[in-house]
Amino acid sequence: MGLDIRWPIGLLFVIFGVLLAGFGLASDAALYQRSLGVNVNLWWGVVMMAFGAVMLVLAVRGARTPAGDHQSGATDSRRY
């Protein structure tokens, strides 16, 4: 359908992850009293970054072997 949804998902989560983790590194520890002393921005940012990266890798792999392309359709039985 023209646009592989894994690109925007991957990009959004990498951006969110970088922003949150970066903010988590830079921010004062006093901020995390409300989250029971856990620097959730940093840790959750890292998790989101990793998830985004996985999506981007899948998108890149998807772009190399275009699914639904009638030439590769026979070899690529794994249509998502």
């Binding site: 949150l20 921010s27 409300r34 989250s35």
Partner: peptide, 10 residues
């Protein structure tokens, strides 16, 4: 209550 600024935006 629990989310610090940053995660709160999320």
């Amino acid at each position: 209550h629990y989310f610090p600024t940053g995660l709160l935006g999320l």
